[in-house]
Design a protein around this nucleic acid. Structure first.
Lengths: 190, 190, 190, 190
DNA sequence: GATGAATGAGTGTTCATTCAT
DNA sequence: CATGAATGAACACTCATTCAT
């Protein structure tokens, strides 16, 4: 028998991300995605059980890629602020480097497809950050509020600022970046 | 008085919002929307030139509804903080009252359909808020940074906190609300 | 609005019968049937909810056509033997006149599709014959056995003799016909 | 001794019969059949040149199995009636024992696939019965009519009575069986 | 000999839209 | 104004079959 070609799976991920960004979920048909990936549409079904599986797998792939990037420079011995700043800048770098990955993620998360994801499994990949925030609370450095509130002010503004769909005609540069993190920190620090 | 036609148009808006939230853009076909609105799918074309027009019109309708709600209690004579707080709480009230409107908005804004909207025209409806922020900057109450940055920390966290798709299993209550606005204010104030 | 075209439904019935006879259920695709009927395959779905519905409806249509034919000359005042002979010859005439209708019926009845038919509703159309047989039993003219046994010897041999698929290279002619009915009568009479 | 290959071929026959009975020719795909037989679908092509070949071979296999069963107790020295009765009851036993084999046969024989079978070759396996009938004619015991007529009244009613698809909710038992053969004999005897 | 990978052609069905009334 | 009828194009997906190992 032939051996499975991992390049094809990768090409399908890329094609999915590209097309969904350009024309949306509705218009991104299986055949268009397959054509973009230079693969027969029936071959797609060798790698994914159906369209839904392809989309969800693509999302999970990206999300785990992001968690890897954000935790690469993670160093528990640093002060809380520096830990968060490192993660924050890593996230920005990731978005800058792979803006289409990020945009797909945002579109997916706001669609009904997101209900199909095993969220708990994904969240585990971000545990070190959650623990750092908790340590900040315990050490009276960070406001004693729900993790959702902290995340909403620490990371969510960044997703908006980096999203060309939401901040049209304006781009976050390195100078703004320092300011922006300062604002995020002001929001959550005691 | 509402004419028969307006009722049908209204029903189509409602059906669109409901279906897109439940099953997404991809699966929300014209015929399903028409059936949900108890209208023939041919009749839909009396009110909208095509499916795209229906979706964009629905979005614009909601966005203007939101701007009306946020500016209802607007009072230029109040201190900046109170002006923003009023708008902030009005927005929260709107989302709480019409969560499906809000969810449609988020899904739409993150999709390629959003490129079809005349953004400048829409932004005009939020001018008083933008001016208030600028006044805050001039009066050295608010950080002198780009409006996009201010919006990202003032309003964007709220959209996340109120979005059940993003904050699953957690709901913003009135007590958290005060805290949340405090964090938003800490982020943008000097 | 346009008015529904009954000719199209009729054409679809004919096309279904023709194709299923020629190439079987497996190869008779919706698109082939539609093309044979000179109708768009989407139009087919205006008349039938799906392929299954088309096939079952075609079967029911034929079966009722057959019952009409068999009971046309039905006359309760005749002797039992003549009543049955009339029905028998009517059935033969029907098969001779519309052999492809009959062949479709046989193929359908032997396929799993037949499970989808409301058999009780169909059987009602043959009640007069069943009653005649019962009268024959009561009058001690016909063997006192189950209706299924009577039908199996009275009508089933005819379906075989008239089926070119089962009796290849041999055809039932008018002379044989008299003989054949005689054999059927011998089987069931006391 | 049965080799490994023969087991696979046998498994493919069984899987074909099972699936075709349950879901029909149309839905019985090569891959489903292969999966049911616990064999790769490519392996199927080692034993059969294509799907058609598989189906026809399965039919021929069954038909020859049936002929073997019907002639097992064949004894030329018995009276005609006993010869036929033995064959008749053997056929009933076969159907009772392997109802799914029989049902496949009926479905196949009524489909266009049956055109692909070498009928003459198959008929040879039933020659003793045909000769017995002819002897009956010569000895003025059986009606002097075409063999097709005799077969239609002797064996065909049995196929109907034993077919659950045609005689739903009614089953032929041993008591009916004697009656039934009596009717068959009445039909063909002089 | 046996099989998983791969695919072009085809499946049944729904789509957005137009047409006739 | 409103709608059921009608359809070409596209949909997600499966097919029978071949290929490389």
């Amino acid at each position: 028998m032939r051996t499975k070609d991992d390049q094809k799976k990768e090409a399908l991920f890329e094609a999915t991300i590209k097309l969904v960004n350009e024309i949306g979920f509705a218009a991104s048909s299986v055949s268009k995605i397959a054509k973009e990936a230079n693969v027969s549409s029936s071959t797609l079904y060798v790698f994914f059980t159906n369209k839904e599986d392809l989309l969800v797998s693509t999302y999970v792939e990206i999300k785990m890629d992001l968690s890897r990037a954000m935790l690469e420079r993670f160093d528990d011995s640093l002060p809380i602020r520096d830990i968060l700043k490192n993660a924050w800048f890593s996230m920005f770098d990731y978005i800058s480097l792979k803006p289409h990955y990020f945009q797909f993620m945002e579109q997916f998360a706001n669609s009904p497809y997101s209900d199909l994801v095993d969220r708990e499994a994904l969240e585990k990949h971000f545990v070190p950050l959650i623990e750092a925030l908790q340590r900040g609370i315990d050490e009276k450095i960070i406001k004693n509020v729900d993790q959702n509130l902290l995340a909403a002010f620490l990371f969510h503004p960044l997703t908006r600022l980096a999203n060309p769909r939401l901040c049209h005609g304006w781009e976050l540069n390195q100078a703004d970046l320092e300011t922006a993190f300062g604002m995020a920190w002001d929001a959550i620090r005691l």
